[in-house]
Design a binder for these strands. Structure first.
Lengths: 159, 159
DNA sequence: GAAGATTGAGTCATCAATCTTC
DNA sequence: GAAGATTGATGACTCAATCTTC
């Protein structure tokens, strides 16, 4: 029978790296979620959405562009946008020039929310991530994550 | 009025690092989930649970120990254990010596499942993570993640 | 009473199917 | 027909409340 090929197993060293990274993958989002939820009633992804909107010209971005800016699927963003819209923090409107596009727009109250939420969130990111790293580690982590993201991006070939 | 203290905002360099890491936090679990789900009907956390069980003596671990081994809450593990038990991949039984403890035990069919799932999962981890890193980056990422985990662990003081 | 463990309610993410506009 | 966007059903995670054993 055609047994599946044995993969190249992880070395002890590689296992250590992966276990450490996996721990961060599982726990860090929850910690940051908790701070945002407690202080601002937002989860991490919702914060990314509003924060990204607040940094764009006219506080406006096309939905599909916003989705890739926050590394989420368009479907996920659409569901989140509905919630944020219901709470009055953003609104959606057809693009004036092309009705097939939808623009996401930050409202005034959304803008105020982001401004109020940012300090606490930045403090948490600094506490749990940035200040835990040496300058060299920070550099390496940045490069490493950029490299990982490239493999994930569409276009990379994977069974 | 007592304005909330301005935090130390992130430098441009720090922002780059955080944005890259945040991208990995959001996307990498989904990619690994997808491979496992497709090939073995497991999500990443379920795989961690079964894989960890398979590496313990007698394929048996106390629930609370298993929870910290996989970086999850006991509550989350308990919910997952129920699913895995229903599918026949593990079982739970009171510890013989102390009825207050519960032992998680890998079944034979669970053992076979892990063995069948491991090659594909390892290939995915190697493809998306390990092989994306230089030796120095791998080292730095391991140390960095270990350091981040220490800040998250209970005991660290945080508002 | 406290540690270990479980439960269920509420909330969110994912995926396939659908709708709209060009 | 295809790109952009939305919807809803299903399954999973979280949190607080509860139960059990010592």
């Amino acid at each position: 029978v055609p047994e599946p090929e044995e993969p190249e197993w992880l070395s002890t060293h590689e296992q250590v790296v992966w276990v450490a990274l996996a721990g961060v993958l599982i726990k860090l989002p929850g910690v940051l979620d908790a701070q945002l939820q407690r202080d601002s009633g937002l989860n991490l992804f919702e914060y990314f959405v509003l924060s990204n909107l607040s940094q764009r010209e006219n506080h406006t971005v096309r939905m599909s562009d916003l989705a890739s800016l926050v590394n989420g699927s368009l479907s996920r963003l659409s569901n989140v946008a509905k919630r944020l819209e219901q709470r009055g923090w953003m609104r959606r409107e057809p693009a004036p020039d092309n009705g097939r596009y939808t623009n996401a727009v930050l409202t005034d109250s959304g803008w105020k929310l982001v401004q109020a939420a940012a300090p606490g969130h930045v403090r948490a990111v600094r506490h749990f991530v940035i200040s835990a790293l040496t300058a060299e580690q920070a550099c390496a982590v940045g490069d490493a994550c950029t490299s990982i993201m490239q493999r994930i991006e569409p276009g990379s070939t994977w069974p």
